[in-house]
Design a protein around this nucleic acid. Structure first.
Length: 459
RNA sequence: GUGGGUAUAGCUCAGCUGGUAGAGCGCCGCCUUGUGGUGGCGGAUGUCGCGGGUUCGAGUCCCGUUACUCACCCCA
């Protein structure tokens, strides 16, 4: 059989790279739990009518089909989920009677989309979602809360480049448009938002043309819409800038107040590396968002698009009697990690968890070496025993290849006992050690992330 | 979906107008009979993506095909 080739869009990592991704996932999980979010996992598949519910036919859904499928449709009527929000909405409805509201959960899972792969865009990828969902109502301070949780998480991912969270509020946009007299419904304001959303790709004049021709705006309104979209600030200064445009509407006031509260509510967490910016061009396409919207750019990778996005949806789910509003944000783990592994030297300090390799003198004494390993593991020191009793030079090389920092030597003595020594193969230093007491330095206990990100930032 | 590029050793690649397959790195062994890395010497490895065609002869030229890849489109 010839050598298998990679499948486009289905990334697989080598152990050292996977260690980086694992570190990201562990950090996210840890942070989410620190903020009191409970973990859940939903099945990989949903019924097709659930997946296509939002009219999201643009999503390329992978269908499930048995090899011996005989139905007329030719498939089982279920498909792999393309995000974690749709399954979560279904899960909330299904378990509404058993959940306590407001319900806060995190979910870190694979999702699948059939779209053509590109850098940062895959057919199989991992997402990390947090959402807070209420029954009938959900206070706005939860919008601030999920933002703060994600800022906290991104801050803790300190081996990655910086992030800029861009926040906006759909009430603000819609109120502004309504104040201008742009008709709502029939995709009127949605169309304008969709076009404004292209500002990061098309020049302003081009977008203006589109606003005039495709959305049918007056010249004056198009200019106002564009003026709004160019407003951005790292504090609540955007409020005055919007007011200066002279548009009045109740919904606009509400949106301004919410967005200002959000930006002020995150101010104490903002650093040079993780910023929060009010960016009034952010609209998030034709989605189900009704208030707060987020996008996030990774410094140095702006062209890749948003790596972490979400927002407020007043009707995440509804069973006809009860409506469940929510606010959530989703981080593209694969989108962040895979391009960084490819484009920078980002990797782990070793390809195995082992901090120690216990050498083997000869096969007859393997049990002695295994006993040393057991002693170390009793104190949570990851270690392994050499695979064969090769020359010590080869056993050291075995450790070196894998990045294992310490080799443990058990030497028989003339009186029938043994001596124990541990060697730091980076320095060459070798010292007597007690298997029941010796501990490596804290920094060597687990693989660490080796980051060359500074170099990347200088470009 | 549209258009371009690429496919040769484990990896990165060279191979001109057709003449039986190469380099660097890595790997293995020895120098080094129980402690690696640097150095020296030696060694192994290929359906040249796949199928067809032209030719005395194809990695090289032609046609087809598959995969990968980049851009566009679309979208998180």
């Amino acid at each position: 059989m010839s050598k298998p080739t990679p499948l486009s869009g289905f990334p697989e990592l080598l152990p050292a790279q996977r260690a980086v991704e694992q570190q990201v996932i562990d950090t996210l999980r840890h942070t989410f739990e620190l903020h009191g979010f409970a973990g859940i996992e939903t099945r990989a598949v949903e019924p097709l009518d659930q997946l296509l519910r939002k009219g999201d036919t643009s999503k390329e859904v992978y269908l499930l089909r048995r090899l011996q499928e005989e139905s007329v449709e030719g498939h089982a009527g279920i498909g792999l989920h393309f995000d974690l929000t749709v399954p979560f909405a279904r899960y909330v409805l299904e378990n509404a009677g058993k959940l306590d509201f407001p319900f806060r959960r995190y979910q870190i899972q694979k999702a699948w989309r059939g779209e053509r792969p590109q850098e940062g865009r895959f057919r199989e990828f991992t997402q990390a979602d947090i959402d807070i969902v209420g029954r009938d109502t959900l206070a706005f301070h939860h919008d601030v809360e999920v933002t703060r949780v994600m800022v906290d998480a991104l801050t803790r991912l300190d081996f990655l480049p910086g992030f800029r969270l861009q926040v906006n509020n759909r009430k603000l946009i819609q109120g502004f448009y309504a104040g201008l007299g742009i008709r709502t419904g029939d995709g009127g304001t949605d169309e304008v938002m969709r076009l404004v959303d292209k500002l990061d790709k098309l020049p302003v004049d081009k977008v203006r043309d589109l606003l005039l021709q495709e959305a049918g705006l007056s010249v004056e309104n198009a200019d106002r819409v564009l003026e709004l979209a160019t407003i951005r600030s790292d504090d609540d200064g955007f409020v005055a800038a919007v007011r200066a445009l002279g548009v009045e509407h109740e919904l606009l006031d509400e949106g301004l107040a919410e967005l200002a509260e959000l930006v002020r509510g995150c101010a104490d967490l903002v650093t040079d590396r993780v910023r929060v910016t009010a960016d009034l061009s952010i609209a998030r396409g034709l989605d189900y968002y009704t208030g707060t919207v987020f996008e996030t750019r990774l410094d140095g990778y702006e062209s890749m698009g948003s790596i972490c996005s979400g927002g407020r949806y007043d009707a995440l789910a509804s069973d006809g009697r009860t409506t469940y509003p929510g606010v959530g944000i989703s981080l593209g783990v694969s989108r962040v990690v895979v391009p960084l592994l490819a484009r920078t030297g980002l990797s782990a300090s070793r390809s195995v968890p082992s901090a120690v390799l216990v050498a083997v003198v000869d096969e007859g004494s393997r049990a002695t070496s295994s006993a040393v390993a057991a002693d170390l593991r009793r104190r949570d020191i990851p270690c392994e025993v050499a695979p064969d009793a090769a020359k010590f030079g080869k056993q050291i090389r075995y450790a070196e290849r894998r990045g294992i920092p310490f080799v443990w030597f058990v030497q028989p003595t003339d009186d029938g006992g043994v001596t124990h020594q541990v060697k730091d193969i980076r320095s060459g230093q070798q010292v007597d050690a007690d298997p029941a007491a010796w501990t490596p330095p804290e920094a060597d206990l687990r693989p660490t992330i080796v980051s060359t990100v500074e170099h990347e930032e200088n470009q």
